[in-house]
Design a protein around this nucleic acid. Structure first.
Length: 209
DNA sequence: CCACGGATTGGCT
DNA sequence: GCCAATCCGTGGA
């Protein structure tokens, strides 16, 4: 695993603008790994380094929510790139996707795990309200845990990722993961399990299992 | 209208 | 390893 994944240097930050996400999720996935998900609250900042994502596509992907076409629930996936698609599942959990591919084409990356970087105590408070013991490595390990730790819920569906407009955005620092990215089948699905569309940082203990 | 099960998680055996 | 929790979108009658 690359060094320095648990830290970042603010002066190296390069903000990702919405048009950066206008590409196929399979192409975007390895580029997003290692980048920082940042939410600026009024009095503090939450930063998490993404280490695991899954690509979901449109009508060619049986496991995608968009497989059968646009519905009220999944329409964010068909919207402009650089927005969030947040959905509610199992009666209690939210999961967050980064919408990609050109507008009108369904494509998204499910964020499955991240390393807490800044605002860890705020993340811990949100998560620990429900769980007894909690290791740092479990704070954001899993798609619903990621949302819980960062306070992402259905109100953030279709939110545009923009430092100026919404204070929620992605950024890259100097971390590079060349040669440290693996892929595998996606987790928790029953269809299209032959695609290796889960991407994660090799040997990273913050990745889900 | 109703039944089914889900891109999950945490606790218990 | 197993299963309950707990809504709601989706699909079939």
């Amino acid at each position: 695993m690359a060094e320095n994944l648990n830290d970042y240097r603010e002066k190296d930050l390069k903000i990702l603008r919405p048009n950066f996400f206008e590409k196929d999720p399979l192409e975007l996935a390895p580029e997003i790994l290692g980048s920082l998900f940042i939410i600026e609250k009024k009095t503090y900042k939450l930063i998490a380094r993404i280490v695991e994502v899954e690509a979901y596509r449109g009508h060619l992907d049986e496991a995608s929510h968009a497989y059968s076409g646009k519905t009220k629930r999944n329409e964010a996936m068909f919207g402009p790139p650089g927005h969030l698609y947040v959905y509610f599942t199992y009666g209690m959990h939210y999961c967050a996707n980064i919408v990609c591919a050109p507008e009108g084409t369904a494509g998204a990356l499910l964020i499955r795990a991240a390393i807490p970087i800044e605002g860890i105590n705020h993340m811990r408070r949100r998560r620990q309200a429900r769980i007894r013991r909690l290791d740092d490595k479990d704070l954001l390990r899993g798609p619903a845990r990621f949302c819980q730790g960062l306070g992402i819920d259905g109100k953030m569906n279709k939110l545009v990722l923009s430092k100026d407009k919404t204070h929620a955005y992605l950024a890259k620092d100097s971390v590079r993961l060349d040669g440290e990215i693996e892929n595998s089948p996606r987790i928790g699905i029953k269809k299209a399990i032959h695609h290796n569309w889960r991407f994660f940082v090799r040997n990273c203990p913050y990745v889900s299992r």
